[in-house]
Design a protein around this nucleic acid. Structure first.
Lengths: 194, 194
DNA sequence: TGTAGACAAATAGAGCTGTAATTGTCTAGT
DNA sequence: ACTAGACAATTACAGCTCTATTTGTCTACA
């Protein structure tokens, strides 16, 4: 659902740079002028594609969520054991902003929630469901069932781990190590932090 | 290390009510007058026990951490299987503020980190070590080892789960349910959310 | 499809002002 | 060991002004 007809590659790159600028300065302190400059476009060109600043921001965050979910799908669809697939998917989703200090993270997050909190929640829930589905479709489901645990239990627990690790303020390496440990525990076999 | 000699019961109650007031209004918007009123003491009496507002706040937070760690100890020392013990300890530590909307949580947390961030970190690490030690001393350690996992892996994963569930904004019931699921996954057997 | 320039309206920000609340420290009293 | 009252010094807050920036919308032009 693009705001106007524009070839999707260009739009994608535009939104990516816009998101980068927003992430750097926060929503409030980012000017359309600055986004335009970063995207090598005129400020007026920006308004040609997006009604206003909010619409641009919503589109940028929306794209981030979409590409994130797509990355999760790709990781889960790989030809590999369930452990590495879960690890890859969670690294892609929860590890996105890990290792990026991001001074304006609060303002940015608050604004995101205000403008599209429902979408964010849905994306989070969608990822959790995808994890659950992959677990349910793998041999792991049977092993969990033996111990009286459902794929949903495992998926929700992994979700909690992912969120916890996300804002634990770890380095990227530490994040990967702990994520691997978490997935290992869920899967019941060691998973390497890649 | 009390600021002055005062019988420890009274001091404890004083700090508990002080913490409640701080939790309600945040550090900045809480006046000594208000704490004094809540504790049925004169404002001057407060200054008799604590050098200044910061010292009072530090003491209150410090007490909260101490009683929290003590509760963890108590839960882990119970005569019960490792699963329920881990669950009880984690509920006590991570579930402390769950279900309390707490509008000023941000300011309060920021101030706590500023004034005694090191103590908070140490307490968190201490709890994680206690979880690890209990796991290591239980039959669970052997079962984990069979799958190539260490007690530390399990403990750090549980810590991440606890933190994630803590600020997931869940109701108390949902928190307990998911915590039980997480512990179940770690222990390999169902644990009931009590 | 885009750029450039210009525009009114809105917003942000720095600075200032005066009042009210708060802090921390006295003293005197029980 | 505590209260009560009072105190100067600091800080918070609500309001104001003025300026600079930014937003969103024009028009004219490639």
């Amino acid at each position: 659902m693009p705001d106007t007809s524009i070839d999707s590659d260009r739009r994608g790159r535009l939104l990516d740079t816009a998101l980068a600028v927003f992430a750097r300065y926060g929503f409030r302190k980012t000017s359309m002028e600055e986004v335009a400059r970063a995207a090598d476009i005129s400020r007026q060109g920006l308004y040609l594609h997006f009604r206003d600043k909010e619409a641009l921001f919503r589109a940028a965050i929306g794209r981030m969520l979409e590409t994130g979910v797509a990355a999760v799908d790709a990781e889960l669809a790989r030809d590999a054991p369930i452990g590495p697939r879960l690890y890859g998917a969670m690294k892609a989703w929860y590890g996105r902003s890990v290792g990026t200090p991001a001074q304006n993270a609060d303002e940015l997050f608050a604004r995101s929630v205000a403008l599209l909190g429902d979408v964010m929640e849905r994306s989070g829930a969608e990822v959790a469901r995808k994890l659950e589905a992959s677990i349910a479709a793998s041999p792991l489901a049977a092993r969990l069932a033996e111990r009286g645990l459902s794929p949903a239990d495992a998926a929700l627990t992994l979700e909690a781990c992912g969120l916890g690790l996300k804002h634990a303020g770890l380095t990227r390496e530490a994040f990967k190590a702990r994520l691997a440990a978490a997935v290992s525990l869920a899967v019941g076999a060691p998973v390497r932090p890649v």
